[in-house]
Computed example of a mutant assay.
Amino acid sequence: MTAPAPRAPRPDHPFFDHPVPLAFAHRGGAAPGAENTHGAFARAVELGYRYLETDVHATADGKLVAFHDATLDRVTDGSGAIASLPWAQVRRVRVGGGEPVPLFADLLRAFPRARWNIDVKADAALAPLLDVLDRADAWDRVCLGAFDESRVARARRLAGPRLATSLGTRGVLGLRLRSYRLPGAVGRGALCAQVPVRHGGIPVADRAFVRHAHRRGLQVHVWTVNDPERMRALLDLGVDGIMTDHIETLRTVLAERGAWI
């Protein structure tokens, strides 16, 4: 007889105080373009999204912006590395020729009921982010992640338990190995694992991974899922959250299952 699946965990942090599965608007819902803009996030909130995903970089003078790439070139009419440019210059460029690059502090104020999943893209962005969260007293509304395990660990050391964090790359690898009953280091302190469906040719978000994460009290959030059938399959596995560019599609899939809350 197959053992029953462990119940989906509810980590002890206000960020997770919502029925699962969680629906995340990836970069505000990047499918129509104008990703990580005030307009993108406003559209997601109007559709009913409570969880928004974004990325942060710091300008040369320490201003924290919501932006994915290290450089402006791909999605704006400007160019150059954000870390080498002052805010006075970055604020003049336009994403897709339309909206400006937003300061993350302004987004926190504009959407006071939203919860933010934040990918810290560079070491230089960490201190400005923690400062913004402290000034806004927004610790309850944020989960921080990064591919760099040391960056996540540093955030935990500086902020303590008031900051929710996800596993870094090494922790996810350790969790994957443990789900195969192989030795692996997962570490402590994280409250969720945020993972792709696959990494290269290796499956990550499968039934064994989700079960093992749940046994350890970790939620599993999967990115970036835009196909409705893949969404349904992941929900059937018991994942606790999905990040998508196609925010209307995910809302429809969850509504079909009575899970759009």
Rank of each mutant, 00 (worst) to 15 (best):
Arg170Pro: 00
Leu158Gln: 13
Leu173Met: 14
Tyr180Asn: 03
Ala153Gly: 08
Ala205Thr: 01
Asp148Arg: 11
Val172Lys: 01
Gly171Thr: 08
Leu163Asn: 10
Arg198Tyr: 12
Ala164Gly: 02
Arg176Tyr: 15
Gly145Pro: 00
Leu191Gly: 14
Ala205Ser: 01
Ala190Asp: 03
Val195Ser: 05
Gly174Leu: 11
Gly184Phe: 07
Ala205Asn: 03
Arg170Tyr: 04
Asp206Ser: 08
Leu144Arg: 02
Val204Pro: 07
Cys192Arg: 04
Leu182Thr: 05
Gly200Glu: 02
Ala185Asn: 00
Gly201Cys: 03
Val195Lys: 00
Arg156Ala: 12
Leu182Glu: 05
Leu158Phe: 00
Val195Tyr: 08
Arg188Asp: 15
Ala153Leu: 14
Gly187Leu: 08
Val204Lys: 04
Leu191Asp: 13
Val195Phe: 09
Asp206Pro: 03
Leu144Phe: 10
Val204Met: 09
Tyr180Val: 03
Ser179Phe: 06
Val197Lys: 07
Pro203Lys: 09
Gly171Lys: 02
Arg181Tyr: 13
Cys192Phe: 04
Cys143Lys: 04
His199Ile: 00
Phe147Trp: 13
Pro203Phe: 11
Arg198Leu: 07
Leu173Ile: 14
Gly189Ile: 04
Arg198Cys: 11
Ala164Thr: 02
Arg181Leu: 15
Pro203Gln: 07
Gly174Asn: 06
Arg188Cys: 09
Gly189Asp: 08
Arg151Cys: 10
Leu167Glu: 05
Arg181Ile: 04
Pro196Ala: 07
Arg151Glu: 07
Arg154Thr: 15
Thr165Ser: 00
Leu158Pro: 01
Leu144Val: 15
Ala153Val: 09
Arg151Phe: 06
Val152Ile: 15
Arg181Gly: 07
Ala164Asn: 07
Arg170Ser: 09
Leu191Met: 15
Ser150Lys: 04
Arg207Leu: 14
Val186Cys: 08
